[in-house]
Each structure stands twice: as C-alpha cells, then as structure tokens.
C-alpha cells in the first residue's frame, strides 16, 4: 500500500511537471546590420564579459586554439574558424558560453557580433 502511494505521488509529480512548449521563432535583436556600427571594442568586451574566465578561452589554457584574451587573438580565431564561431556563438542553436555560470548571450548581442563579423571585424 505504501509503495503504491509513493508511485501515485510520483505519477502526480510527473503529470504536474510535464508540458510541451516550444520557444518562439528567434527574431532580430533590433540590430540593423546595414547601418549598425559595431566595433572590435564592443565585441571584445561582450565576449570577455560572457565567455572568458580562468578556465574558459583565457589564452594558454583550454581550449588553447580559441584564445579570446585579446582583440588580436579573437580576430585571428574568427578569421580561421569563422563557421565554427558563427555556429557555436551566434547561431540559433549556439551552445556557447557553456556552464561556468555564464548566462546565454542575448539575441541583440548575438546579432551585433554577427554584424561585426559580417562587416569584416572593423576596429573603428
């Protein structure tokens, strides 16, 4: 009897917690890339705030290949791994930043960084 009660309780818990929800279609974060002026300074600040710490992209550490510690290394990485960066950082299913307490990038920030890349990583 006790066992049945436990499983009935679990069933209720499952039923109460189950839902089917799909996120709305991603919309632009309000960035008009044709006129927006996104600079390296903005992109570097955004990435260093949200993607780098002692364990993530710090340079000389893991992952060594994706060093975002300076503007030069960030741009070098994007120039050589553009598709990967776009897929994992600014794409619709971007899985970066991972864990380490970082929240996901906002759509506006993703759009801005994508725009910066599309414009050729301008400094000014």
């Amino acid at each position: 009897m006790r066992r049945i009660t436990i499983f009935l309780f679990m069933s209720l818990l499952f039923a109460a917690a189950c839902k089917n929800e799909q996120a709305p279609s991603p919309v632009s974060g309000g960035v008009n890339c044709d006129v927006a002026k996104i600079t390296t300074s903005y992109a570097l600040t955004a990435i260093q705030t949200n993607c780098t710490n002692r364990g993530c992209h710090p340079g000389g550490n893991s992952p060594a290949v994706a060093d975002f510690s300076t503007a030069t290394t960030l741009k070098a990485y994007i120039n050589t791994h553009r598709s990967t960066f776009e897929l994992r950082a600014v794409g619709s299913l971007a899985d970066m930043p991972q864990s380490q307490g970082f929240p996901a990038l906002s759509q506006g920030m993703k759009d801005s960084i994508a725009c910066w890349i599309a414009h050729g990583l301008p400094d000014q």
């Binding site: 917690a17 189950c18 839902k19 089917n20 929800e21 799909q22 996120a23 709305p24 279609s25 991603p26 619709s92 299913l93």
Partner: peptide, 10 residues
C-alpha cells in the same frame, strides 16, 4: 518540456 523553435518536445 521546453525546446527551441522547430525542435521537438517529444
């Protein structure tokens, strides 16, 4: 319970 747009819940 919650998935991205056009992904599958089930």
């Amino acid at each position: 319970n919650r998935v991205s747009y056009m992904d599958m819940n089930n």
